[in-house]
Nucleic acid binder design. Structure first.
Lengths: 310, 310
DNA sequence: TTGTAGGCGTTATCAC
DNA sequence: GTGATAACGCCTACAA
C-alpha cells in the first residue's frame, strides 16, 4: 500500500519512506501492473478510438492530435480501424468495451439505436468527431452539408452554371455532395452528372470516374470531388483527354492534402484542421473524466482555399 | 467458470449448457472484463506500437497494416507517438510496459543498452520495423544506407556528376543521405552541398533549404532528399528561382507519397510497401505468440521509381 | 504517516 | 462436463 502511495500520491508519504521505496523499485526493476490497477480502481486509463482508416490524412491527423494530447496525461490510446464498413463499429465495439476504456472516440455522428444502446450501457464519455448532427454525448466537428453548400456558393459566385460531383460511398462524403447538389439546384444551376465511388477512393477511382462522365462534359463545368485525391485523379484524366483545367473543367476537392497543394494546377479545396479536432476531442474527454459536466462540444471551422484548379 | 469456458473454449461445454449461458449473457448485457482476464491469465491480448508520428504516410501505412491484421485476431493495438525525440522511447516505455502488452512494435533498430535492458526485462516479443541493423529480436525492414547507395547508382548511371543532399535530422533519413554521399564520393562524384533539416520536415523546410543552397548550384546537379515532401518543396523553390527541373536540377525523393506522384513534374522516388511491413510485423509477432521460435525476421524490398524530376 | 482487510472479475487447477 | 478454490496485483476503506 505504501508503494502504491509513493507512485500515485507521493505527497502523502514521508520523504524518507518514499526514498526507501524508490530505491527498492530501482533495485528490483519493479514495474507496476496497470491491468491490476485498472481492475481494482475501475479506471483503465485507456481511451479507445475508432476511425475508418489512418491511411488517409483525413483521419490520421485527428488521431495524431488526440494521441499526442492524451500521452501527456498518462492515458493511452487503443486504436481500432473500421475500414468504412458500416457495420464494423457495432461488430468491434463489444471487444473494445471489454477492455473497459475510460472513454471513447468515434468517427461521425450517425449511429442507430442499437449502437446508442451499447454506448449508453457502457456509461462512459463518448466524443464523436468529424461530423455534426445529433451527438450521442460530446461532438467536435463540422457540418458536411454546409461544406457542400459553401463550395456551391463559391463556384456559383465564380460564374459557374453547370455542375458535377464525385463522392466516395461514405456517409460524410455523400453529405458534402448532397449539400453541394441541393444548393446548386436551388440556385438554378444545371447538374450534369453525379457519381458514387467506392470508399476509400483515391486517384485511380477519380480518373476512372472522369473517364466515364467525360462524354457529358460539353461546355464549361465545375466538378466537386469528395476528396483531394479523387480531384487529382479527375484532373489527371481530364488533361489526358485534352480537357483544359480550369478552362473547361473547374475542380474543387476536399481535405487540403499535401498532394493537392503540390499538384499543377494546385487544387482548390476545403481545409479543416484535423489535428486540432483530435486535440479538442482529447481536451473535452479529459475535462469530463476530471468531473466537468461539459457541454455537448463544439463546431470547428472549415474554409475554402481557392487555388489554380478553379 | 462455465461462462468463461463458453466464451473461450466453447467446444468443451455441452451444447445445452452453452446455450443457457449465452441466453443469460444476452439477458444481462454481460460484457467480459479483459482487464481481469489479463491479470489472471497474464496475457493482455494487447500489443503496443511506438512510431515517431502517424502524420506522415511513412508511418501511418505500417500502423494501418499492423492494426488491420491484429484486429482480426482479438488483439488490440496501443499506440504511442515519440515525435522524433530521441529520448521519448525510453521515457514512454515504462508506462507502456506497465500495461503488460503481450508484444511490442518499435520503429528503427538503433537502441542503446539501457533500452535493450528494459526490453529484455519485459521478456516479450519485440518487432522492430522500418530499418535494418542489429535487431533486438524480430526485424522487418530494409537498409537505409543501401537505399542511398542505390539512388546514387541510379543518378550516376543517368550521367550526373555533381550532387547534393537534404536530410531530416532523423537517424534513418541521415543513413539514407550518408549511404548516398559515400557512394557518390566513392564513384568520384562531386558533392556540392549537404544540409540537415529539422524532423519532421515538410515542403516548407525543403523550400527554405533550397533557397539557402541555390547559390552553390552552378551547373547541372542531382539532389537527393530524405522524403518526397522535402523534394517537393525543393522543386517548388527551384522553379521559383528559375532553375529548370530536371534540366539544371534533378531531384529524387523517398517514400512514394501521393503528393510526389501528382506533382508536376512527378517526383522520382524510392517506394517501400509500408502497409506490408506492418502486416508482416503483425504476422511474425502472432507466430511468436503462438509459440513459434521464428527467425530474426526479414528484409523487405524497396525500389526506385524513375519519374519526371530526374 | 503507515498498515491491514477485502474485493475488483477473471482464469488455472484440481475435484467430482 | 461442470464446479469449487485460490490466485493474479492492485486500490478502497478503514484502523492504528
Amino acid at each position: 500500500m505504501t508503494v502504491s502511495r509513493v507512485l500515485n500520491e507521493p505527497e502523502r508519504v514521508a520523504p524518507a519512506t518514499a526514498h526507501k521505496v524508490r530505491t527498492a523499485i530501482q533495485a528490483l526493476g519493479y514495474v507496476p501492473n496497470l491491468l491490476a490497477g485498472g481492475l481494482s480502481s475501475r479506471r483503465s486509463r485507456m481511451i479507445a478510438a475508432m476511425v475508418p482508416t489512418i491511411a488517409s490524412p483525413i483521419f490520421s491527423a485527428p488521431i495524431q492530435g488526440f494521441t499526442d494530447r492524451l500521452m501527456q496525461t498518462g492515458y493511452h490510446v487503443m486504436l481500432s480501424l473500421t475500414g468504412y464498413r458500416p457495420d464494423a463499429e457495432a461488430a468491434l465495439l463489444p471487444a473494445v468495451l471489454s477492455r473497459r476504456p475510460d472513454a471513447l472516440l468515434l468517427t461521425g455522428a450517425r449511429r442507430g439505436p442499437a449502437l446508442r444502446h451499447m454506448l449508453a450501457a457502457a456509461a462512459i464519455p463518448v466524443v464523436e468527431i468529424w461530423d455534426s448532427g445529433p451527438a450521442f454525448d460530446i461532438l467536435v466537428g463540422f457540418d458536411h452539408e454546409e461544406v457542400g453548400r459553401e463550395v456551391a456558393t463559391f463556384l456559383l459566385a465564380a460564374g459557374h452554371r453547370r455542375f458535377a460531383a464525385l463522392a466516395a460511398s461514405d456517409p460524410r462524403a455523400e453529405a458534402r455532395a448532397g449539400g453541394f447538389l441541393r444548393a446548386v439546384a436551388a440556385a438554378g444551376g444545371q447538374i450534369i452528372e453525379t457519381r458514387r465511388l467506392p470508399a476509400p477512393s483515391s486517384m485511380t477511382e477519380g480518373r476512372q470516374a472522369l473517364r466515364e462522365i467525360a462524354p457529358q462534359l460539353r461546355g464549361r463545368t465545375a466538378l466537386f470531388c469528395s476528396s483531394d485525391l479523387i480531384a487529382l485523379g479527375a484532373i489527371t484524366q481530364a488533361r489526358a483527354l485534352g480537357i483544359p483545367v480550369p478552362g473547361e473543367l473547374a475542380v474543387c476537392g476536399f481535405g487540403d492534402f499535401d498532394a493537392g497543394r503540390a499538384a499543377e494546377p494546385p487544387i482548390t479545396t476545403v481545409s479543416v484542421d484535423g489535428a486540432a479536432i483530435g486535440r479538442l476531442a482529447a481536451e473535452l474527454l479529459l475535462a469530463r473524466l476530471a468531473g466537468a459536466t461539459a457541454g455537448p462540444g463544439l463546431r470547428v471551422p472549415f474554409r475554402i482555399l481557392p487555388r489554380g484548379s478553379t
